[in-house]
């Protein structure tokens, strides 16, 4: 599944980035990446990512069957981290959850979209049926990026997030019903190829 990595992508701003799965050798770089994030960003994360203990635990528990971590780098510096979380067993085994963090200086350059797209491609290969992203209502640009890839707002959970300052925020769950989109294309093929009615294209 990962034989095409590492691969390079070019931003409109001219920078060249490398995309690849996280490796054991990335521990220090990943910690440095999280330490460099503004406090405002980490305030909403589930874990204390600036703690080396947390990073140590992540690397000790690295299991690509449960969490697929993809990083983007400039030279050897991590500038974005994305993960696809899946359940191996149980009722949610058809669902993948996508999480993304991008370094402040690389925002509004298309990095988040590239990373989201990469995780989406991996999810397609894994034949996942539904993808979800959990965002806050004020993450407008992130919501737009998810929407550009076919995600829709599925639910709003009120006061679901409490930041480190004790303020509550609403959480939006965005979902992408993979099979529904592909069924639409399949129907398009059948209708066009058999009936010749392609007036709606």
């Amino acid at each position: 599944m990962f034989n095409e990595y590492p691969k390079q992508v070019h931003l409109n701003s001219g920078e060249t980035l490398t995309i690849r799965p996280l490796e054991q050798r990335d521990k220090e770089s990943l910690h440095k990446f999280f330490v460099g994030l503004p406090d405002r960003d980490v305030m909403y994360l589930k874990e204390d990512v600036k703690s080396l203990d947390v990073i140590d635990r992540w690397f000790a528990e690295l299991n690509f069957k449960k969490v697929i971590p993809i990083i983007m780098l400039v030279d050897e510096t991590i500038i974005a981290d994305g993960t696809l979380h899946v359940d191996e067993y149980g009722w949610a085994r058809h669902i993948g959850e996508i999480r993304l963090v991008v370094a402040k200086e690389f925002r509004r350059k298309g990095v988040a979209k590239l990373l989201l797209r990469e995780l989406y491609f991996i999810a397609m290969k894994m034949q996942l049926e539904k993808l979800v992203g959990k965002l806050m209502t004020n993450q407008r640009r992130a919501i737009e990026i998810f929407q550009e890839l076919g995600f829709k707002k599925e639910a709003t959970l009120r006061h679901h997030i409490k930041d480190r300052k004790g303020h509550n925020h609403n959480m939006i769950i965005m979902s992408h019903m993979v099979d529904a989109h592909w069924k639409e294309l399949e129907n398009m093929h059948l209708q066009d190829d058999f009936s010749g009615d392609f007036s709606g294209m």
Binding site: D192, D193, F194
Partner: peptide, 16 residues
């Protein structure tokens, strides 16, 4: 090709 492969869509895309 055979029906359902998206033959017409392919032609449409070239023309478009």
């Amino acid at each position: 090709g055979f029906g359902g492969q998206g033959i017409i869509l392919t032609g449409m895309l070239i023309g478009k």
